[in-house]
C-alpha cells in the first residue's frame, strides 16, 4: 500500500495536457493523408491504389476525404511517389449544438452499432488515466435516459438500427450524436451493403463526425470538446505539413 502510494508519487502526473497544451508524445495519432500537388500520372496511380475512394483529384490536385480513409497506408507504402501525410488529431468536424450548460458535465452514452472493436477500444482509452475524460467534465452514462451525447461507433448495421433509434428517442433534449470512426461516417471498407446502410447518418442526424479508423482517443476528446463548443472544428482542407510517414 505504502509502496503503491510512493510509486504513484514518484511517477507524477502522466495525464495528457490536451486541450490546454498540444500533445507531443510519439504515437498518439496514426495521421491522415493530406491534400497536395502531384504529377498527373502519380495522382491517378494513387487514387487507383485507395480501396475506399478516400483520394480524389480536383483541378489536378490531390484531395482527401478523411471520412473514408481507413489508414491502410497503400498510398504511402509501396508507392514510388507517396501521398503527403499529416499528423495531428484535431479531426472532428461538425457543429457544437450544446451550450455552455454542459461545460462541466456532459454525459455520454456509447452505442456499439456493429463496431469491430477498434473504435470501442479507443473510446475505452478515454476513461483511462492517460486521457482521463472525467477531468474535462465528461462522463460515460449507462443509460440514454440520462445522456446528452450519443456516441456511436460502427457502420450502423441493420440489426442495430432499431436499438440505435430507440436509444436516440430515449434521450432528453438537447441531444447530440457523435459518429466515431470511418465506418460510422461512410461505412468504411463495408460501404453500403446487405447488412448496413453506409454510416450512421442514414439512421440518425449526426452532429459531429470524427474520422479515423480508429480515431485516436485525442480525436474523440476533440469531438466532445467541439460538441460543447470548447474547441474549433478541423480545417476544411488539410495543408501539406511536409511530414512523412516514417
Amino acid at each position: 500500500m505504502t509502496q503503491w502510494v510512493l510509486e504513484g508519487l514518484r511517477a507524477g502526473i502522466r495525464t495528457t495536457r490536451y486541450p490546454f497544451a498540444p500533445e507531443t508524445a510519439a504515437g498518439v495519432s496514426p495521421g491522415l493523408p493530406a491534400a497536395g500537388e502531384l504529377a498527373r500520372p502519380d495522382l491517378e496511380r494513387l487514387i487507383a491504389r485507395c480501396p475506399t475512394a478516400a483520394l480524389a483529384s480536383a483541378d489536378g490536385r490531390l484531395v482527401v476525404d478523411a471520412r473514408r480513409c481507413v489508414h491502410c497506408f497503400r498510398c504511402v507504402r509501396g508507392s514510388d511517389t507517396p501521398a503527403p501525410w499529416q499528423g495531428g488529431y484535431e479531426w472532428a468536424t461538425g457543429e457544437g449544438t450544446l451550450g455552455k450548460t454542459f461545460t462541466r458535465s456532459l454525459h455520454i452514452r456509447v452505442v456499439d452499432a456493429g463496431d469491430c472493436g477498434a473504435c470501442l477500444h479507443e473510446v475505452k482509452q478515454l476513461a483511462g488515466p492517460y486521457y482521463s475524460l472525467h477531468r474535462l467534465g465528461f462522463f460515460i452514462s449507462p443509460t440514454p435516459r440520462q445522456a446528452d451525447v450519443l456516441l456511436v461507433v460502427g457502420p450502423g448495421t441493420d440489426q442495430m438500427r432499431e436499438a440505435l433509434t430507440k436509444a436516440y428517442k430515449a434521450m432528453p433534449t438537447p441531444r447530440t450524436v457523435i459518429a466515431v470512426g470511418t465506418c460510422a461516417l461512410s461505412g468504411g471498407v463495408f460501404g453500403s451493403n446487405f447488412a448496413c446502410g453506409g454510416g450512421i447518418s442514414s439512421i440518425l442526424p449526426v452532429d459531429v463526425e470524427v474520422p479515423g479508423n480508429p480515431p485516436p482517443p485525442l480525436a474523440i476528446l476533440h469531438a466532445l470538446l467541439l460538441a460543447t463548443g470548447r474547441a474549433a472544428p478541423a480545417a476544411k482542407e488539410r495543408q501539406t505539413a511536409g511530414e512523412r510517414m516514417p
Binding site: V111, T143, P144, R145, E162, A163, L164, K166, A167, K169, A170
Partner: peptide, 8 residues
Amino acid sequence: EEQWDGGV
C-alpha cells in the same frame, strides 16, 4: 416516447 428497454 417509448420507454427505454435497453434497445431490444
